[in-house]
Simulated assay, not measured.
Amino acid sequence: MSQQPSFNGLRPVFEIGGRILFNADTRELSDLRGHCPRQSLSTEQAGLLFCLARSPFIIVRYNCLDRSAVSAATQLNNTRTVHALNRALWQIDPACAHIRVIPRLGYVLIATAMQRSRT
């Protein structure tokens, strides 16, 4: 049975790249311009994006990923998760944001990410 990530009690909303809204609570991506439908993320995708959005442009090392947010999956599963997450970000805005894999180190979110207040 899979367990929902707790995100350490925080349930923030992030604006990524000025065009994408990521709601960590509902695990959804949405287009701030309203051009694309909402995208639902898996628990692993939402957990990884949450970790990356907290520190954009900084390498999030494999061993530093929040274990409550990202399951201890194999490297192959992490690669699949990153690929699916990149595809979801690209479907909303191809030029906005993407995740870069740094071999033997970790992942980097290549976009600005700001925490927004809930409205």
Rank of each mutant, 00 (worst) to 15 (best):
residue 55 S to N: 12
residue 60 V to K: 01
residue 68 S to L: 08
residue 12 P to N: 09
residue 88 A to P: 03
residue 68 S to M: 07
residue 96 C to L: 09
residue 66 D to K: 03
residue 58 I to H: 14
residue 11 R to P: 00
residue 101 V to D: 02
residue 33 R to W: 08
residue 77 N to I: 01
residue 50 F to P: 00
residue 11 R to A: 12
residue 64 C to Q: 07
residue 118 R to L: 14
residue 73 A to Y: 04
residue 109 L to W: 01
residue 13 V to N: 04
residue 88 A to Y: 05
residue 79 T to I: 03
residue 81 T to P: 02
residue 39 Q to R: 13
residue 115 Q to E: 15
residue 47 G to C: 08
residue 58 I to G: 05
residue 112 T to Q: 12
residue 41 L to N: 06
residue 95 A to M: 13
residue 115 Q to D: 08
residue 20 I to A: 02
residue 9 G to C: 05
residue 88 A to D: 02
residue 10 L to I: 11
residue 29 L to F: 14
residue 106 G to R: 00
residue 78 N to P: 00
residue 34 G to E: 08
residue 55 S to E: 13
residue 65 L to R: 00
residue 105 L to G: 09
residue 15 E to Y: 08
residue 52 L to Q: 07
residue 47 G to W: 01
residue 58 I to A: 12
residue 35 H to Y: 09
residue 111 A to N: 02
residue 29 L to T: 09
residue 27 R to F: 15
residue 83 H to A: 13
residue 57 F to I: 04
residue 43 T to H: 10
residue 28 E to K: 02
residue 1 M to A: 09
residue 98 H to A: 06
residue 66 D to S: 06
residue 28 E to A: 00
residue 39 Q to Y: 09
residue 110 I to P: 02
residue 44 E to F: 05
residue 75 Q to V: 02
residue 78 N to F: 04
residue 1 M to R: 06
residue 78 N to V: 03
residue 7 F to P: 00
residue 104 R to S: 15
residue 12 P to W: 15
residue 55 S to W: 10
residue 83 H to Y: 14
residue 34 G to D: 06
residue 110 I to V: 15
residue 23 N to K: 02
residue 18 G to V: 12
residue 75 Q to F: 03
residue 4 Q to L: 15
residue 72 A to T: 06
residue 100 R to M: 09
residue 112 T to E: 14
residue 104 R to A: 15
residue 30 S to N: 08
residue 83 H to C: 08
residue 55 S to F: 12
residue 36 C to H: 11
residue 51 C to W: 07
